[in-house]
Design a protein around this nucleic acid. Structure first.
Lengths: 274, 274
DNA sequence: TATGTTCTTCTCATATCGAGATGAACTCAT
DNA sequence: ATGAGTTCATCTCGATATGAGAAGAACATA
């Protein structure tokens, strides 16, 4: 995409001093979401050092920009920090199936007391993962139920919430949740929260956990099967019925659709329209 | 959002050396879109210096991070660069009504031959604006018809295109166009391309220019009026008929909706679903 | 075995959409 | 001034999608 510099530019580059620009650092932060016990959880680490020591934060850290270490791309930095701070291995299995997308960039002056820091936030959807193990700069790491973090619509945390989030991470998490809620409407990404094979009720549980409201089981079932490419049947049936009874649901896997058409709109949008 | 550092942290900050991190610079680039003569145009500048001297690029530049100059927020930097390089004044009038939103961040190693540069791209929707005047680092500035840039789906430019784009700006522009196309579906942002008062056919022309396909006039009319809060009537009527005839259309202004419900879906989505 | 739960498929009324048609209002060329 | 062609605004009609509810079969648990 970027052509090689011409010979004229080589001369220019030889005299170029990167230090002539303002000092600024770039970090990545990851909003990693999963479903545990039927409710939405986010991966958090407890900070082992200043600033905000002892508070909880999104996993993340500085991007290797290319000074002493080898330059790494932004998504690679996100996966590396996720692995370093939580022990969730990127190799093959565990992090292999996660969906990773860029969420947004947060760079207000003063968002980090150390210096001017621009943070590129990533959003990850993962099926149920094992408990994380703290590493790197993290004193602790855990899946935290999103509902217990007391997030408000404005991106703050309600007073009295036990796990306080460092920096502007409450805002980043709020933006990530809203993005996730929206993406479930018009993309098949809910399947990224499930394993390789799943049932329609399991898929419905994902929607209910992310959207925070119950859905009409019959209509949801009809809708999922009527959207082309959303899911495809495996022919098999789950070997167990539901925990509280009911017939054994059939098994499906993710289809080849990249967009849901027509979309699966959440019921209670009326309020947020104006 | 970010609490003040505690006393412990003040001590930490006193010993903190920003230079310990890799040298990296942060820039903003702006994809400014408008409708001219019924087709979609993007604001471009011709580079006055290396690298890529003489090629066209999105307006943008380095963020004042807070070293010698005062630290500025990212959206402020976007507006400032837009004003500096194109002469479109940010004060009050011209740039006052533009919609600005963050598009994404581009930071692959090697995207800029000078050093590791992380670029935060912004997307701007503007009503018809005057011709820009080159300033700052720009040798020239102009509204370029998007259709003449030979953009492919993969974010490259077709060979033979006259105006070649520097850096990865073809990719950024492609992403911005796709974002704009999608936003028109479920938000009332098409009104940001119109003036304070507009007619339904003018609004339809915006959709047709951005989506690149003709719409059914009757159904579009019914849809716009049926979505609550999309437009509201001024009671007045345009003083002229269409250029090629027809009755004088009625005038409307933007309503108070922030989301279109139900959405206004583009017809030819079938292809891009898989 | 009895009871309650859940999966899956229907039904039906309502809402929305795509395609086409119509009449009135207007511009432009003759 | 007249006629031809264009466009606005509204309506119709069939096809499709949606929300709410119902019903039967399969299953877990007591």
């Amino acid at each position: 995409m970027t052509p090689d510099p011409t010979r004229d530019e080589s001369e220019f580059l030889a005299n170029y001093d990167p230090r002539a620009y303002d000092p600024v650092a770039v970090t990545v932060d990851v909003v990693a979401l999963t479903i545990r016990d039927g409710s939405l959880h986010v991966l958090l680490v407890r900070r082992g050092g200043a600033p905000f020591e002892g508070m909880w934060a999104l996993p993340g850290g500085f991007v290797h920009a290319g000074g002493r270490r080898e330059a790494e791309d932004l998504p690679d930095a996100a996966v590396r920090e996720l692995a370093e701070e939580t022990g969730l291995s990127a190799k093959g299995g565990v992090l292999g199936r996660v969906h990773l997308e860029q969420l947004g960039t947060y760079g207000s002056p003063g968002r980090d007391p150390r210096m001017r820091i621009i943070s590129v936030a990533y959003l990850a959807f993962a099926p149920e993962l094992p408990d994380p193990e703290a590493g790197g700069d993290a004193a602790d790491a855990a899946w935290a139920p999103v509902g217990a973090l007391g997030l408000t619509d404005s991106g703050d945390q309600r007073p009295g919430t036990t796990r306080r989030l460092a920096f502007d991470h409450a805002r980043i998490l709020s933006d990530g949740l809203e993005r996730a809620r929206g993406k479930l409407e018009y993309t098949p990404l809910a399947t990224a929260f499930c394993g390789g094979e799943f049932t329609i009720p399991e898929l419905r549980a994902v929607y209910e956990a992310v959207w925070g409201e119950e859905l009409h089981a019959g209509n949801f079932h009809r809708k999922v099967l009527s959207v082309p490419g959303f899911v495809e049947s495996t022919g098999a049936t789950s070997d167990k019925g539901g925990r509280r009874g009911g017939p054994r649901p059939r098994l499906y896997r993710a289809g080849d659709a990249r967009l849901l058409h027509p979309a699966l709109l959440r019921p209670s949008r009326e309020e947020e329209i104006r």
